[in-house]
Amino acid sequence: MIKDIDKSDVIGPKSIDSPFLGSIPVERLSGGVKTLILMNNDSEHIFNASACGDNCAKWILKIAEKKDLIIRLGYLMDFGKDEFDIEIVNIGKTVHNSLELAETVLDNHLI
């Protein structure tokens, strides 16, 4: 995720090599990547996926392949053209593609 989104390399447990920012501590990873890492490793909390851009969507789906993942999302993220299973917890409905997701969210005025 760090390589894909931040284009950076992990050079040690506390150090990241960023092509744009140089050597940085892990705290300065992008908000999107930090949120993804938390989603992956901390199942105790619900994280705000609005901190993640569209380029994080595929990783959210990937993490959700391993475990049920509950996120908070405040915008219509682009989850791509493939089918998926996303349950919209507010109304208990599962949607399977981007159109269904957009229509369900907007019809129910969820954002």
Binding site: I5, F20, L21, S30, G32, G53, N55
Partner: peptide, 28 residues
């Protein structure tokens, strides 16, 4: 390391975009 140019002309301007595009770095 980084160089930003921005023009604001109204009371509210919104910045959006992909993760790691440099928004938080600008504010930092």
């Amino acid at each position: 390391r980084v160089h930003y140019f921005l023009t604001v002309k109204r009371n509210i301007t919104i910045l959006q975009g992909d993760s790691a595009s440099g928004k938080t770095e600008l504010i930092r």
